[in-house]
């Protein structure tokens, strides 16, 4: 019951879904349509695990007065405040998900600017990483450096000052050698995914079972 039944569910579900792809019969389409209805519902409940773990972690920190415990309130208050304002609070008091509500305000004016700034912060770190990585110590590092410089300059107006060849070469690198490398990596990833799929379906890979209840 603890291990065999879940492994059987995986095997039966996996084989059934592979078969239905190759046999587009009326019955297999019904199975697929039902799956499309059921899978998001089951998957949505996984959110409980995420919210539960996050709440447990931060409430423990607050209770034990762990280091920087005060910041845990900054996680817990919006975590429960957002659903409260969006789903429970009446619109007249700033509830709901429409514009001008608390939910919309927190998303548009707190989360969006913070996330965009965090990604833009990487511009500074990527520049310092580039300084270290691009020191042309070997022929291969020089190729890396040249490709990056040509692609970067080819994308901005200043690149055209050096001549039309620079943006064209940048585009050529993106279109051909870059695509060749990406395609090879993608093929490798694809074969890896196929192997992992089969290993999970046939119960060779069982790490997903975790250690819950052994």
């Amino acid at each position: 019951m603890k291990r065999t039944v879940p492994l059987m569910i995986v095997m039966v579900g996996g084989i059934l879904m592979i078969i239905q792809y190759f046999i587009p019969h009326q019955y297999s389409l019904i199975v697929f349509d039902n799956y499309l209805e059921w899978a998001p519902i089951v998957g949505a409940f996984a959110l409980i695990l995420g919210v539960g773990s996050l709440t447990r972690l931060h409430s423990h920190k607050i209770r034990r007065r762990a280091k920087n415990w005060q910041y845990s309130w900054a996680v817990l208050i919006p975590l429960f405040g957002m659903p409260f304002f969006a789903l429970i609070m009446p619109e007249s008091l700033g509830g709901g998900t429409d514009v001008h509500g608390v939910h919309d305000f927190l998303f548009m004016h707190v989360q969006v600017p913070i996330q965009a700034t965090m990604f833009s912060l990487l511009a500074f770190y990527i520049a310092s990483a580039a300084f270290r990585a691009f020191r042309a110590k070997s022929a291969l590092a020089t190729v890396l450096l040249l490709a990056a410089v040509v692609v970067m300059l080819g994308q901005v107006p200043i690149g055209a000052i050096f001549g039309r060849w620079l943006p064209e070469t940048g585009l050529w690198i993106l279109r051909y050698p870059n695509l060749a490398a990406k395609r090879a990596i993608m093929l490798g990833v694809g074969f890896g995914m196929l192997a992992t799929n089969l290993k999970i379906i046939f119960g060779v890979e069982r790490n997903w079972l975790g250690g819950a209840g052994k």
Binding site: G13, A39, L49, G210, A212
Partner: peptide
């Protein structure tokens, strides 16, 4: 009773892997 949580994971995992197999074969290979 934590082992019961394996049932929904098995459903999502099994069907997801089955659906993903031909699609991965098509798109990635």
């Amino acid at each position: 009773i934590a082992w019961l949580s394996r049932y929904p994971i098995a459903f999502v995992m099994g069907t997801g892997m089955g659906i993903g197999f031909p699609l991965t074969m098509k798109a990635y290979v």
